[in-house]
Design a protein around this nucleic acid. Structure first.
Lengths: 203, 203
DNA sequence: TCACTTTTTGACCAATTGGTAAAGACACGA
DNA sequence: TCGTGTCTTTACCAATTGGTCAAAAAGTGA
């Protein structure tokens, strides 16, 4: 088995681990943890099942690896929100970055949503360790902006929830959105959400 | 087996079908379709597995029954939105009714979310047949309000998406919300969402 | 080329899962 | 009380699933 403690993963190891994780993202995001099978992942990756288990110790390790990687990507746009910038610009920028992610990384969004939906059994520690402190910090920043009169009074926590829910909706509920709307969904969504949060936040 | 074509389901049939559906709602909403097992449902219902299959022809029929029942409940608050009422009152009323549902029926919300998240494999027909016409109708109503100058210009479809996403977020992402907030979440949510939509929609 | 390591595979489990068959327990009107 | 239809259980499948193992194949450096 590939020794995790060694420094240099071979070219082949890098390629195959990447193939597996990408295939697993497809399968897990489409069917959920329990609904995904190693056979499906193996076929999507173009490898045999035992070969997959040569690179990962089991189904759960693949899932956890995916979730860990996801956490970084997920927090990134929020990290970028700058306490010293213009409040409205920063917040609308955050909204638009989240909307970009819903458009460009829908599989990741659905993987995350599925995990939370089922009570975050595998992600709870990550939420506590990584998300919570960042969330609290950014809430303080927003509260500071409100106190300085640069934003209309708003509950920072619920504001962030609103940004998350409205943007991720277009990835997570895509099947529903597609039934109900025709054509240029994302353009309309962007315009609508910018208006929504601008009107909410203008002092 | 209980003949579905007959008029009178016995007292026992009613009770047991109800027991099964309630247990299944627990299990399906917590683990998703594939993640739920008949044994779990049977145990939660306090019946044996073959006994469950005496009342339902299989796992899928239980799920579909649940989804069909859910559709009615789910559309109800939107049906109630009255074209002849005061636009702002009607829309805020809708927001608050959806928030009530997120608070009182989180299992149903999660069952629905899980189904959509996985591409609505079993619900797509229902969405087309029931949800779509209602959605279109209410979009027209809202557009009428906008045209009459009673609301700020807004895209009706995306407005409805925003209402759905922000309210259901508190049920579907409950695990995350609970990590991040303390105590009186629902009260704060209600105040925040009323402000948000009032500010968006005030002409 | 050869020895040695890394990668891949085919054959195989044990456990779980959705589902069945048939016998038994129960309810209830005559 | 009996007989008939409703309900429940015991015992069982066949298929799927996550995972193992030893051996074969493919690289790799000298």
């Amino acid at each position: 088995m590939p020794d995790g403690t060694q420094k240099k993963p071979s070219r082949i190891q890098q390629r195959n681990r990447h193939l597996i994780l990408d295939a697993a993202l497809d399968v897990f995001s489409a069917h959920g943890y329990r609904g995904a099978t190693l056979d499906q992942i193996a076929e999507a990756a173009g490898l045999s099942k035992p070969n997959i288990l040569y690179y990962f110790s089991g189904k759960e390790e693949i899932h956890v690896t995916l979730l860990s990687q996801l956490m970084e990507t997920w927090l990134d746009p929020l990290v970028e929100m700058d306490a010293d910038g213009d409040p409205m610009t920063e917040l609308l920028g955050y909204v638009n970055r989240k909307l970009d992610m819903a458009r460009d990384l829908p599989r990741q969004s659905r993987l995350f949503a599925g995990e939370i939906l089922q009570g975050a059994p595998r992600m709870h520690p990550h939420l506590m360790a990584d998300l919570k402190p960042l969330f609290d910090e950014k809430c303080s920043v927003i509260q500071g902006w409100v106190d300085a009169g640069k934003l209309a009074p708003v509950d920072p926590g619920h504001l962030i929830f609103s940004i998350w829910s409205t943007t991720q909706h277009y990835a997570d509920f895509d099947a529903q959105v597609r039934v109900l709307s025709s054509g240029d969904t994302m353009d309309g969504a962007r315009k609508h959400l910018n208006t929504l949060f601008e009107r909410l936040l203008a002092p």
